[in-house]
Design a protein around this nucleic acid. Structure first.
Length: 476
RNA sequence: CGGGGCAUAGCGCAGUCUGGUAGCGCGGAAGUUUUGGGUACUUCAGGUCGCAGGUUCGAAUCCUGCUGCCCCGACCA
């Protein structure tokens, strides 16, 4: 870590923006804490017209806002603005996984088929698996998931119950050769996913791990400004009650959902939640009320357990799933753990996924209007857009430059539109890309000593002195 | 994987039926104009008409094959 400290010392701007709760390791993938940008130097290909292939609103807006570009069916390049959002989403997931005690690693995208033959999944998996041969004619595959590989890693090193429990996770690209990719990044073939895997010595312990992930998921989606509801899901051959899909409600969602209205208003576990304590009350409060997706929905039970005025029937988007699968992989792969009694048994496993690259799309489905995207602050690519309504005018240029510098100094991510476009075009563009705040600087306002601060979500505008606007944005 | 459709300039489209020297809007460049919600005008640049065969004096247009993409359904994070 010496080199990292040296780097931090020689590059003070890296450390400057560190806020409470951010560790140095969180600098790892998105190594920016604040990086303001001038539009004239940025790469933001806004589309005025909608490409015809985009049917749903999030796909349309992501293309128009220059966030993504399709390279093939279900395969996208993430352009700078989109990448910022993707990284913010990933970072929230990372922080909450770490908080819950999970350990990050990184497994490769390509896997040897032999691993999958051990569990019988190489044959069982259909054409959705992308199969590749290398120059030695060895069978490889582009991983659609990593249970087999993580089990292989785990069994190579861990033999004793004393090293359990453990939860390992990574955030990596996956590939599933969907018959019909659609909805932009919401159902791509290539997708970025956080998948965690828990290792426990018995079922009781596995349930504790399950609860940790369950609670972490509540926090993850809440931090992104989403109301994600855990819903009962198919548990497969294992049975039991330990599988939930996390669904956000959106009219345009892919699946029908049914739930008790009160699940929407349950409190989110706080940041200082003790993950080693008893989490079952939190989980129980969520799971005792009816909530199910269409495929496991039981109308009679729904009506029995939920008063008519509390019944919600709408549509939703799955953004995560938690699943306990016991010995499904550890048994065939002989990943054995010696218990306190000296007897070796397969570990009890679970897996926990979050659709990272799907979330930007889901977030837009949940938060937009006729003018464009409305980003929740936690995942916004920039916090504020600064519009110079008369670029080239000495007074407005100077005012904008001063505001830009002040925001940068305060650690506020700002995108400065320093183009010479007309005001209307700038307003439309800022509304489209959905930054939470806009500072609008023009000659008229400056004549009376004010700039305009607009809140994207509400449309509220306020005229105030530049210093006051900066203070507002630099505050909480 | 069943059903339907599309492929012409960076994007959105017309032209295909009825074969004859490839067009419109937006966007881009230059300029004039305008200046608080996508300003108006002038000029310019930009296309192997998805690919490969075939028919024909001549193919974006007709025929055959292929590829890519989209929509509905089944399936899925």
């Amino acid at each position: 870590m010496v080199w990292l400290n040296a780097l931090g010392a020689s590059m003070p701007f890296l450390a400057r923006g560190l806020k409470f709760g951010q560790t140095r390791r969180s600098l790892a993938p998105p190594d920016r804490v604040c990086s303001p940008m001038r539009l004239s130097r940025y790469f933001l290909p806004i589309l005025r017209e909608t490409p015809k292939e985009a049917e749903i609103v999030s796909h349309r807006l992501m293309l128009r806002a220059g966030m993504i570009r399709q390279e093939a069916a279900g395969i996208y390049a993430w352009l700078p603005l989109g990448l910022r959002v993707l990284q913010k989403v990933a970072q929230i997931v990372r922080e909450e996984m770490d908080r819950a005690g999970a350990i990050e690693l990184l497994m490769p995208t390509l896997q040897l088929a032999d691993l999958w033959r051990e569990t019988g999944r190489y044959e069982a998996y259909g054409p959705e698996m992308l199969r590749i041969k290398d120059r030695h004619e060895r069978d490889l595959l582009y991983g659609p998931t990593n249970e087999d590989m993580i089990t292989g890693i785990f069994r190579a090193y861990v033999r004793s119950y004393r090293e359990l429990p453990k939860i390992l996770y990574h955030i990596q690209w996956k590939f599933r050769d969907e018959q019909r990719p659609r909805f932009g990044v919401m159902r791509g073939r290539e997708f970025l996913m956080k998948d965690a895997y828990s290792f426990d010595v018995d079922e009781a312990s596995a349930r504790l791990s399950y609860n940790k992930m369950f609670v972490a998921y509540l926090r993850i989606f809440s931090r992104m400004g989403l109301k994600a509801i855990p819903m009962r899901a198919e548990t497969g051959p294992i049975g039991g009650d330990l599988s939930h899909e996390f669904i956000i409600l959106a009219e345009t969602g892919e699946s029908a959902v049914f739930c008790h209205a009160d699940v929407l208003d349950l409190p989110i576990p706080p940041e200082n939640t003790d993950y080693d304590g008893d989490l079952s009350p939190i989980v129980h409060a969520r799971t005792k009320l009816y909530a199910a997706t269409g495929d496991v929905h039981d109308q009679a039970r729904f009506e029995r357990e939920t008063p008519a005025e509390k019944r919600i029937q709408t549509r939703g988007i799955e953004v995560g799933q938690v699943f306990y699968f016991g010995e499904k992989y550890s048994k065939p792969m002989r990943a054995l753990i010696a218990g306190p009694d000296g007897v070796e048994r397969p570990f009890q496993g679970g897996s926990y996924g979050v659709g990272v690259s799907r979330l930007p799309g889901a977030l837009i489905e949940a938060s937009h209007d006729e003018n464009g995207i409305i980003w929740p602050e936690a995942v916004a690519p920039f916090k504020v857009g600064l519009a110079n309504l008369k670029f080239g005018d000495g007074t407005t240029d100077a005012a904008c430059a001063a505001i830009y510098a002040a925001l940068e100094k305060a650690g506020v991510d700002v995108l400065y539109d320093d183009s010479d476009e007309r005001p209307g075009a700038k307003f439309a563009k800022l509304d489209l890309i959905g930054l939470p705040y806009q500072i609008i600087v023009g000659p008229k306002g400056l004549a009376s000593g004010t700039v305009e601060l607009k809140t994207r979500a509400t449309g509220a505008r306020e005229n105030l002195a530049a210093g006051a606007a900066i203070a507002r944005l630099a505050g909480v």
